[in-house]
Nucleic acid binder design. Structure first.
Lengths: 225, 225
DNA sequence: CTTAAAACATGACAAATATCATATATTTTA
DNA sequence: TAAAATATATGATATTTGTCATGTTTTAAG
């Protein structure tokens, strides 16, 4: 079994701020878990009681809106922590986490993280910085949701997926999402998302083969309005 | 000149976690400032280099979207801190702050706050908790922006203003906003906001006298769809 | 007080998006 | 493999929202 100390994943999140002794302690009480595509890691309203460190895979954080539709609030990827927000504010989870592809995660109990947060200022400062970054991103999404058209938001999403998750040998986006996921990410009806993706294809901005999507004209997508 | 130690405002934000000595130190280097309605406290892209503690008044945090419209991301009120996010992540401000009514604020330089953040774990944990709360609120706003109609968002806003800022003797909302502000808060055209407010009035959900608005049927507004 | 400017209001119309219906393709299950 | 379930696609239409035009009211300035 691998230890947190050896694990390179910690470089990508606040755990990097911990020293050798703390990492050894975490290793001793962490559990690891494999989740297959589509499985639920935790649900809105549940107590998480710890933090997940994503060793591999991608998951979507969704919230059920009043009208019964799921909104995907963000995608969380390899290297990210999951559940810090609920842990810090001592609340049940505000969001549901569902695996977008097969995942490997480590679970670290709340008590251990709190131990470090209260004693290790550089760890809590690092976590504070991460959360500040998330907050800026969330504010920007609010503005985009409020002011941009569905067409623009969908173009932005494709650009985001292209730059953030990279592409495979064929140039296709390496994250495979359903059309419904696309709709739930930009906040529109599934039919609208499908329709606009078809338009993008006709306009030569993207090409598609089943669920696989390739960004053909990056700058063209940027200019969409 | 009043000291931070005596100031009751600190009860409402992370400064409550500081001890006597730290508060005395802050008092020594803080500056206070009066801002009149409509004045800009800081702009998007500026370095704030500190934190504002709002002693009195309300201000709106806006961001200019790609299409040239201002979106109000949140209202910040008496007791809140302003600028922590930029300070913590060491970035220029992502938002513009404009006074909605006359304000009194105290400015505390970055260096002093950082001093406490790196040394005082309970202070940085408290700030972390505040930011976690803000992040949950932001996530919920994203869902509402994406999934609710303009009519619902405007009804929600009236309910929020009613419960958060209370009402005057006549039952009118104590925050006076222009119709344009209402539009920029819910992310719609000014004409649309005006039109829907007129509808609410006809439907007996609110009553208005000039800029003053009174929530008449709270539960009715809740049921708006 | 009078005039100019800004804010508010509303109609008419255009554009964007949602909804419903239906068809086809793809995946899963038996 | 066949059948069922699910996902994708697209047309027709309704609804929501934005834009432009115009008039009225309120506020600010001289």
């Amino acid at each position: 079994m691998s230890t947190c100390q050896q694990c390179i994943i910690k470089q990508f999140n606040a755990l990097r701020a911990l020293g050798k002794d703390d990492l050894i302690r975490l290793s001793g009480c962490k559990t690891s878990k494999y989740i297959t595509k589509g499985e639920v890691l935790f649900r809105e309203g549940e107590s998480i009681n710890g933090v997940y460190c994503i060793k591999d895979g991608i998951c979507k954080l969704t919230k059920l809106s009043a009208n019964g539709k799921d909104q995907i609030v963000k995608l969380v990827v390899t290297g990210d922590l999951l559940g810090q927000r609920s842990l810090v504010s001592d609340e049940k989870s505000n969001l549901t986490a569902i695996a977008v592809n097969d995942m490997e995660v480590c679970f670290i109990p709340k008590r251990e993280i709190l131990h470090d947060l209260t004693r290790n200022a550089s760890f809590s400062l690092d976590m504070l910085q991460e959360m500040a970054k998330e907050l800026r991103i969330a504010d920007n999404i609010i503005v985009d949701m409020a002011q941009k058209s569905v067409r623009q938001r969908l173009a932005d999403l494709l650009l985001y997926l292209h730059t953030t998750f990279d592409v495979d040998e064929g140039g296709f986006l390496s994250v495979i999402l359903s059309r419904e996921d696309y709709a739930n990410l930009v906040g529109t009806a599934t039919e609208s998302a499908i329709r606009i993706l078809s338009q993008f294809k006709k306009e030569g901005l993207i090409s598609t083969t089943g669920k696989q999507i390739k960004v053909v004209d990056f700058d063209g997508l940027k200019r969409v309005e």
